[in-house]
Design a protein around this nucleic acid. Structure first.
Lengths: 131, 131
DNA sequence: CTGCTTGCAAATAGTTTGCACGTTC
DNA sequence: GAACGTGCAAACTATTTGCAAGCAG
């Protein structure tokens, strides 16, 4: 374990769990200024292989990373970009049904559910789009 | 409406609804050999803005396009790449719960649900990965 | 030492865009 | 012939990789 990885772990621990690789790189650099983005990706890959970290796709392209133990689902608002956490129990009935009816075992956590949050669903989405 | 767009529409109509932009471009070229991939993207954008076409993200990066009227959800197998269609009613209870409990209105169709199909969930995923 | 880790630059995949030209109505 | 559609090349975003050098155990 190197200093770069230690810094990454501390960034992950101190995060709200919704940071992109670039966000993490930025935070890592506060501790270790010369850490390259690709190093962050590689370290994240390693941590993911170890089961310490998971990544979730929020929308078109970008992914967020969080510690694997904080198991929760994500609702991503298409309008304001807000990310809401959802208890795993909410998805359980769906998972069961898909398994029963289709023999399909969903990895529900790997993708966020996109839609509109309570604010933005209210009539106008005057808020800035966050892709 | 140009010949390129007509060819694209016929490709969409004659498809199983799980084609990527590149797949579509290839099919379009059987009718109109010189249609460029970017033209396909632009035409798809236009059709999407008209509400004729929708796209769904299946996994890391690639998206598939289908006619908007064939409303269904997608289960994408991470192991063999197979895409299974699911009736919208299966997702309805979840959508209702998210709306009730979180005030969140999901666009459930925009992302596929990833996981393992019945084949691949069975013990070994000796099948080729299709990312 | 010996190998895993890093920084950098360049490659990749999927998609988008600027521009000058070609088609459609 | 005005407005829109197209081909091409280049830009872009998010991520990955080859390589030579660096640090950890």
């Amino acid at each position: 374990m190197t200093s770069a990885r230690r810094a990454l772990l501390s960034a992950l621990v101190g995060s709200d769990g919704h940071l992109t690789a670039e966000d993490l790189a930025e935070r890592v650099r506060r501790l270790q200024p010369d850490v390259h983005l690709s190093t962050v990706y590689r370290a994240l890959d390693a941590l993911e292989a170890l089961g310490v970290v998971d990544h979730v796709h929020l929308g078109h392209g970008r992914a967020i990373y969080h510690l694997a133990d904080s198991a929760h689902h994500h609702l991503a608002c298409e309008s304001c970009g807000q990310v809401v956490e959802v208890d795993p129990s909410v998805l359980a009935p769906l998972a069961r049904k898909l398994s029963d009816d289709y023999g399909f075992s969903v990895r529900t956590r790997h993708f966020a559910l996109v839609g509109l949050c309570s604010h933005c669903a209210d009539g106008d989405s005057t808020v800035e789009r966050a892709t």
